[in-house]
């Protein structure tokens, strides 16, 4: 079994979101960068679990990004994985990311490619679908469970108002979310081992984008909360009914 996990770098969940240069650039000063939580907690940890079940599994990680993504991919390697690739490009959009990963994965015989459900900065939820189409393999999005049985996988995926269990022929691409695995933290042994695991820098194929960011915008500040005294909850209900017209 050969598995590839796609790892992206995102601002920490508590990072202050601000923009500069006429709202065209994200202010990254002072921002702490983390592995995108869906990639770490669900895609990567599930892949590690699958490798623990079947130690002959080959587990590769890939990220598309500049040299500044290396601490992130090293941290991922500290959790698990045999080796990592960094495709040395600053991708303009998710399509560009997928183009690069597809070029790397093509003909490499991966049975399974895992992505996170979405990046918490761009919230595209698109890279996995792009990748599956480029590689012409099945795609299961928003998966909450994944097991391998030789040449196929059994998965649960979120559907509106519930879940669906499905069997899919490998190879395939899966986007992972909550339910897949329990979060882990790297231990000392893992951190030491990660230092010597191969991290291969690959030059990109032609960069192709279909979209570009024109400008960012912060939502308007809330007008402020209207507080109702604790001894008069009926007044709150009246406001929601008559003023906000919500109930």
């Amino acid at each position: 079994m050969k598995i590839l996990v796609c790892i992206s770098k995102t601002p920490d969940t508590t990072a202050k979101i601000a923009f500069t240069e006429n709202n065209t650039k994200f202010v990254s000063d002072g921002v702490q960068w983390i592995i995108n939580p869906y990639d770490e907690w669900y895609a990567l940890v599930r892949a590690i679990e699958l490798k623990e079940k079947d130690p002959s599994t080959v587990l590769h990680l890939v990220t598309v990004g500049g040299a500044d993504t290396e601490p992130i991919i090293r941290k991922a390697l500290a959790l698990g994985g045999d080796e990592a690739y960094r495709i040395n490009a600053e991708p303009g959009d998710a399509y560009a990311v997928a183009t690069q990963i597809a070029a790397l994965a093509k003909d490499q015989g991966y049975d399974l490619i895992l992505t996170g459900k979405e990046t918490i900065d761009f919230n595209n939820s698109a890279t996995g679908g792009f990748l599956a189409e480029m590689l012409d393999v099945p795609y299961v999005s928003l998966a909450t469970k994944l097991d391998l049985n030789g040449t196929s996988a059994t998965l649960n995926r979120e559907i509106e108002g519930g879940e669906e269990t499905m069997e899919v022929t490998l190879p395939m691409v899966v986007s992972c979310q909550k339910g897949m695995a329990e979060a882990r933290i790297p231990n000392m042994r893992g951190i030491m081992a990660a230092r010597t695991k191969p991290l291969k820098v690959v030059e990109p194929v032609a960069l192709d984008t279909l979209t570009s960011v024109v400008q960012y915008e912060l939502p308007p500040a809330k007008a402020g909360v209207k507080l109702v005294p604790a001894d008069n909850p009926a007044e709150l209900v009246r406001l929601l009914h008559e003023e906000a017209k919500m109930i």
Binding site: Y95, T127, F130, S141, L142
Partner: peptide
């Protein structure tokens, strides 16, 4: 619609048509 179905299908359609996608 950017629902579970949309998230599953729209990116594949976009990649197949080489059309730019805005989701959300």
């Amino acid at each position: 619609s950017n629902t579970t179905t949309g998230k599953s299908v729209a990116p594949r359609v976009a990649a197949r048509m080489k059309a730019g996608l805005v989701s959300g």
